[in-house]
């Protein structure tokens, strides 16, 4: 499974939005009705999956799936 597909599945489970409706650009807060607790849960699940700690300052930058995927690529480069 591609990284993007894995992330989509993870976000789908947390937000209870079906995978097919999760477009890469859908904004977690505006489009997917994600509240602050769910946002933390998404970040935490992502951190766990990739065994990284996302710095506080980076969290606001992650607002949709494509941004998570992008973030992952940068980590891999590092």
């Amino acid at each position: 499974m591609s990284i993007e597909a894995e992330i989509r599945e993870m976000v789908s489970e947390i937000t209870e939005v079906p995978v097919e409706k999760l477009t890469p650009e859908a904004d977690f807060f505006k489009d997917l009705n994600v509240d602050s607790l769910k946002a933390i849960e998404i970040v935490a699940a992502f951190e766990k999956k990739f065994r990284i700690i996302v710095p506080e300052n980076d969290i606001p930058k992650i607002r949709n799936i494509s941004q998570i995927v992008e973030y992952t690529k940068n980590i891999k480069k590092d």
Binding site: L37, E41, A44, K48
Partner: peptide, 13 residues
Amino acid sequence: QDGPLFTNVALFP
């Protein structure tokens, strides 16, 4: 098991 920084925060409430 996973280390304190990787706990599932959704369990806490």
